[in-house]
Design a protein around this nucleic acid. Sequence first.
DNA 1: TCAACAATTCAAGAATCATTGAGATGATGG
DNA 2: CCATCATCTCAATGATTCTTGAATTGTTGA
Lengths: 120, 120
Amino acid sequence: MREKQALDAFAALSQETRLRIVRLLVTAGPEGMSAGAIGEAMDGASSSRISFHLSHLERAGLVVSRRDGRSIIYSAGLEALSDLVEFLMRDCCQGHPEVCSPAMAALSSCCKTEKGAPRV
Amino acid sequence: MREKQALDAFAALSQETRLRIVRLLVTAGPEGMSAGAIGEAMDGASSSRISFHLSHLERAGLVVSRRDGRSIIYSAGLEALSDLVEFLMRDCCQGHPEVCSPAMAALSSCCKTEKGAPRV
DNA sequence: TCAACAATTCAAGAATCATTGAGATGATGG
DNA sequence: CCATCATCTCAATGATTCTTGAATTGTTGA
């Protein structure tokens, strides 16, 4: 991941509404949610406000969209999120064990296959 | 890691100069670098400009400082970086294999805990 | 076709952030 | 004590970002 992409992703995630949207869409899974439903979940934020934040997130690749009838459905851009994690661990922190080991240990309980080894 | 901390960390890392400072300090290791040396490395940025960004980073925990004579020495806040990686993988992405597995796979080559030094 | 709906786009204003330059603070050596 | 060095703090300015409300685009069902 290039530095510019990482900067865009960090900027996108540094805004409370946008971070909440990403977390909501990760929860929603591949089916995603319509812009209207997302706005509803964000304390009934105005449509233009939600649209502003969604386009910001989409520019950074953190969400992806598709049209379904009148609605536009957004879902989490898992690849960009994965790229960002990788950037943080490898490019930014150079794989320092102090950074990566605790994170990987914390994840071993929620991101693994049957046998306990992280699936690769 | 609470959401507020994560927002602060994302905001801190979303600025080019600050991201470059963090990467520089990760490279510098535990000895760290003086504010002056950091400014020198940032295309000779002014002292007040560097001070502004360093204090922003320190507020987010991404760098830590200590005084050494006339100089103030900054080094990377690895714990905050680790917390941020963990937040991204667990709280934000809920340990989704699509996010975590590629990142962990990419890291398996550079984040060993035993004999070899971490390879980058 | 047309009314209604879902979402986007646009312009204006408020709020926040980054840079600059001047001045203040704190440490050191003579 | 004083001159100097390293850094920080402050106020002003310019730049960017966020929110709001109105107007616009695109889609559907009657």
